[in-house]
C-alpha cells in the first residue's frame, strides 16, 4: 500500500507525516492523543543515514514528548548492501535505532509497528520487531529470504521446501507465518484506524512472542527451551 493512502487510513483525525528520501516522519492524532510516526517507504534499503534519522526521531520524542506513543511504519528490503556502510559500521547504526526504541519503551512510551508493504531481516529486526507489538497488513511480505535463495544455500530442492512450508511456518515468507510464530501480533483488515487505536491501548512492554508462538503452533521450542534454561538446576 502507498504510504499516503496508508497514513490517510490510519490517521483520519489528521497527521503531518512527510517523506524525504524514503524516510517517513511526523505526528498524528490517534484516540485524541498525539503520536510520533516514523518509518520507511519505497522498500528502503536501510543504510547508516536512514537508520540514524529514525533513531533521531525516537530520541527527540523521548526528550521532548514524554510518554508520547510511537508508531513505526515498516517497508524495507533490509540493510543496505554496500561496502561503505560496512566500513562505517552499519551494525552500530542499526543497534542505535534498536536501543533508542528500547529506551523509549522503558520510559513508558507505547510503541506499535506495522508492516504495510515488505519487511526483511536487518531492516525489520531493528524496527517493527523492536516495537511492543508488531502488526501487518494482509498483503505484507515478511521474510529473511525467498525459497529459491534458501534452496541454493541449504541445498534442499525448492519443490521440497515448498512442500515443507505448507506445514512448517519457519521456512516460507509471509505475514501469516510470522503471526503463527508470534513475531506478528495480528493481521489487520478493514478499519485500520480503529485497530491501531486498540493496538496502542493494548501495547505492553513484556516480550510475549515465544509464548504466542507456542500457543499458535508456529514455534514449538522457543518458549519451552527458554523455560528449560530458567528451570535447569544450578550448580551444587
Amino acid at each position: 500500500m502507498d504510504w499516503k493512502n496508508l497514513t490517510a487510513a490510519l490517521f483520519p483525525d489528521g497527521h503531518t507525516v512527510i517523506e524525504q528520501d524514503d524516510f517517513l516522519s511526523g505526528t498524528a492524532v490517534v484516540d485524541g492523543s498525539t503520536v510520533t510516526v516514523i518509518g520507511t517507504t519505497g522498500h528502503a534499503a536501510i543504510g547508516v543515514e536512514i537508520a540514524l534519522l529514525q533513531a533521531q526521531a525516537i530520541l527527540a520524542t523521548v526528550r521532548h514528548h514524554p510518554q508520547q506513543s510511537i508508531v513505526i511504519l515498516v517497508d524495507t528490503q533490509g540493510q543496505r548492501l554496500r561496502h561503505r556502510d560496512e566500513m562505517l559500521g552499519i551494525n552500530s547504526y542499526m543497534a542505535q535505532l534498536a536501543k533508542c526504541i528500547d529506551l523509549a519503551r522503558r520510559q513508558q512510551h507505547k510503541i506499535v509497528g506495522l508492516v504495510y508493504d515488505q519487511a526483511l531481516s536487518g531492516g525489520f529486526i531493528t524496527s517493527g520487531l523492536m516495537a511492543d507489538a508488531c502488526y501487518a497488513l494482509p498483503d505484507a511480505t515478511i521474510r529473511v529470504m525467498g525459497l529459491p535463495a534458501m534452496a541454493r544455500i541449504t541445498k534442499v530442492p525448492e519443490a521440497r521446501l515448498t512442500e515443507l512450508a505448507k506445514s512448517n511456518p519457519v521456512f516460507a515468507p509471509g505475514a501469516v507465518n510470522y503471526l503463527h510464530m508470534g513475531g506478528i501480533e495480528a493481521i489487520w483488515d478493514g478499519d485500520l484506524a480503529r485497530q491501531l487505536a486498540a493496538a496502542l491501548r493494548a501495547a505492553s512492554p513484556q516480550d510475549r512472542r515465544s509464548a504466542a508462538g507456542l500457543q499458535r503452533g508456529g514455534r514449538s521450542q522457543a518458549w519451552q527451551v527458554t523455560q528449560a534454561v530458567m528451570d535447569y538446576a544450578g550448580p551444587p
Binding site: 525489520f124 529486526i125 529473511v144 529470504m145 534458501m150 519457519v170 516460507a172 510464530m181 512472542r209 514455534r219
Partner: peptide, 12 residues
C-alpha cells in the same frame, strides 16, 4: 537460514 523466520524472531 535453514529456519529463517524462527531464527530472525529468535535474534530479536
Amino acid at each position: 537460514l535453514h529456519e529463517a523466520n524462527a531464527g530472525l524472531i529468535a535474534v530479536s
